[in-house]
């Protein structure tokens, strides 16, 4: 992976971005303990395409959702995280 298309800044060097976690590991506030534990401490860790939360930390600072292949590193799409696109 060399360039990530930030929804706000366009294509930027990957070094400016920080990976946070997978989209399915965000825990709803009212989750039952076993659901929360599973979301926090286990990962599907697919050898394939997954949706992940990244942040343009060393750029505009915004959060985004990236759907990405973990073998080829090809990015399918990038969406800003905001009121309309929540993971």
């Amino acid at each position: 992976m060399k360039l990530i298309p930030c929804p706000h800044c366009g294509n930027r060097a990957q070094a400016e971005f920080v990976y946070e976690r997978t989209a399915d590991s965000v825990v709803p506030l009212d989750a039952a303990p076993e659901v929360a534990v599973a979301a926090l401490f286990t990962r599907a860790n697919l050898r394939g395409v997954e949706e992940e939360i990244w942040r343009h930390t060393y750029g505009c600072g915004s959060w985004m959702l990236i759907r990405r292949d973990r073998v080829s590193h090809a990015i399918e799409w990038v969406k800003p995280i905001g009121p309309k696109v929540l993971p």
Partner: peptide
């Protein structure tokens, strides 16, 4: 993780 998934498991691993 890839192998454990074949048995239906999710591991605390990335």
């Amino acid at each position: 993780g890839h192998v454990a998934a074949m048995a239906g498991l999710k591991l605390p691993v990335e």
